[in-house]
């Protein structure tokens, strides 16, 4: 596929198929639109936030085929065939919160919550790969996400609460983001 030049106006679109939060969608997206913009604008899932649009703040983090990814650094067309999970896809089918959401609620992890979608996604991936991280490992695991409000302690507390919640659920972490 050839990408249009920077000054090519809107109009030309490419068809992609992407699974978002468990639903397979067929979309026509503009080739130069970022995945974040596709998620926020074309699919109207605005829970994924844009803090910097240059790959540092982590607010746009989603799970792409299970891996935490910066939606601001990818094009929408690159998600063709992929499985995407956003913050809106975390809650259980019965509407109750995912254990990580529940834990962050208990720990009063956030303030303005603009960073929240990214921290939730990074935490889910972190705990899936390492169900009982130490505090240092938690901090390291979240170091790709910026929060300007909290000083991070409450978020670390939230992750530790999540570890306990998940352990007591015994089923382990919800395999969100795994390709179905």
């Amino acid at each position: 596929m050839s990408l249009p030049s920077a000054t090519t106006p809107a109009g030309e679109t490419l068809a992609i198929n992407v699974t978002v939060n468990g639903t397979l969608l067929s979309l026509n997206v503009e080739p130069r639109h970022s995945l974040a913009d596709v998620i926020r604008e074309d699919i109207s899932l605005t829970g994924t936030h844009l803090g910097c649009e240059h790959g540092v703040c982590g607010a746009c983090t989603i799970l792409l085929d299970g891996e935490p990814s910066r939606a601001c650094l990818m094009l929408g067309v690159q998600a063709d065939g992929a499985d995407v999970v956003t913050i809106e896809g975390l809650a259980n089918n019965d509407g109750t919160m995912h254990p990580v959401q529940q834990a962050m609620y208990e720990a009063m992890s956030f303030q303005c919550a603009f960073c929240t979608p990214g921290f939730l996604m990074s935490t889910i991936a972190l705990l899936r790969d390492n169900p009982s991280p130490s505090e240092v490992e938690i901090r390291e695991g979240l170091s790709g996400n910026l929060c300007r409000c909290t000083g991070y302690q409450s978020i670390v507390d939230g992750v530790e609460t999540a570890i306990r919640l998940i352990a007591s659920n015994s089923a382990g972490i919800d395999p969100v983001g795994e390709p179905t």
Binding site: L45, E88, L90, A91, Y105, F110, A113, T116
Partner: peptide, 12 residues
């Protein structure tokens, strides 16, 4: 926080 009931599910 009651705010978190919206924020944590992406409904801010």
């Amino acid at each position: 926080r009651v705010e978190d009931e919206r924020f944590l599910i992406g409904e801010g």
